[in-house]
């Protein structure tokens, strides 16, 4: 048995074949490949998702290594390419589509046309609200984050089910303009995004 086959068998042992097969058919959009997007994507791949669309326009910087799923030898690389390589090191059979571009209002529909589920992983609040508005109008299942800065009180990073296809995660207050992005709370928010997506897909809605 190859390593990828053993990896799959292991997952099937945990969640069952029917649920595993369902994960393999869903394409998830990752809008932004920073602290949220890179970590959320890693969680999704680890639970068996195979098909992801990664969208970001940035490059890996040394200052990202404190919380984002990149390595020192990737500084200077395009984030989507670095993330693609890192995810493939977890599971070699992924279907990853990458787009190295900024997400604009008019491009949201085309960028995520084949994604039923999208994780909002952007930095600026103006970009978050624009993306979420567009995705909700397109009837996507949207998992967004608001409020992850600082450290401590991590139970305040909660799920807020706004409506059946929109879950907001965060403490709704801790703007990184005032409380810098620190790894544990960023990772908690990213992990919760992945868990909400997993639950949504496995519950079959």
């Amino acid at each position: 048995m190859t390593i990828i086959e053993a990896f799959h068998e292991h997952l099937i042992g945990k969640i069952g074949r029917e649920k595993f097969d369902r994960l393999r058919t869903i394409r998830v959009g990752i809008a932004g490949a920073g602290g949220l997007g890179s970590n959320c994507a890693a969680h999704l791949v680890r639970v068996g998702f195979r098909s992801l669309k990664l969208v970001d326009f940035d490059v890996v910087e040394a200052g990202n290594l404190d919380r984002q799923f990149y390595f020192a030898d990737q500084v200077g690389m395009r984030k989507v390419e670095a993330l693609r390589q890192n995810l493939l090191r977890i599971a070699s059979d992924l279907e990853l589509e990458i787009e190295d571009r900024k997400i604009e209002k008019d491009s949201v529909g085309a960028l995520f046309s084949d994604c039923a589920v999208v994780a909002e992983c952007l930095d600026r609040p103006e970009d978050k609200s624009l993306l979420v508005s567009e995705l909700l109008m397109l009837k996507k299942f949207v998992v967004a984050v608001s409020g992850l800065g600082g450290y401590g009180s991590s139970d305040a990073i909660r799920l807020h089910p706004v409506r059946e296809n929109f879950v907001l995660i965060g403490d709704l207050q801790s703007d990184i303009a005032f409380r810098p992005a620190i790894s544990p709370r960023v990772s908690i928010a990213a992990a919760k995004q992945a868990d909400v997506i997993l639950e949504h897909v496995l519950s079959g809605d």
Binding site: G32, G34, G35, L36, G37, C121, L122, D123, R124, P125, K128, S129, V132, S133, L136, M137, A144, V145, S146, G147, L148, G149, V162, R163, L168, G170, L172, Q173, S174, D175, I176, A177, A181, V186
Partner: peptide, 29 residues
């Protein structure tokens, strides 16, 4: 339960019994 694009906000008036959700984002990703 319907998202209203920002450009329409000035022309959409609330009616009795309406239900509004306001989701205000803070920065960080």
């Amino acid at each position: 339960l319907e998202v209203i694009p920002r450009e329409h906000w000035p022309t959409v008036s609330l009616q009795a019994e309406d239900s509004v959700e306001l989701v205000s984002f803070v920065g960080g990703g």
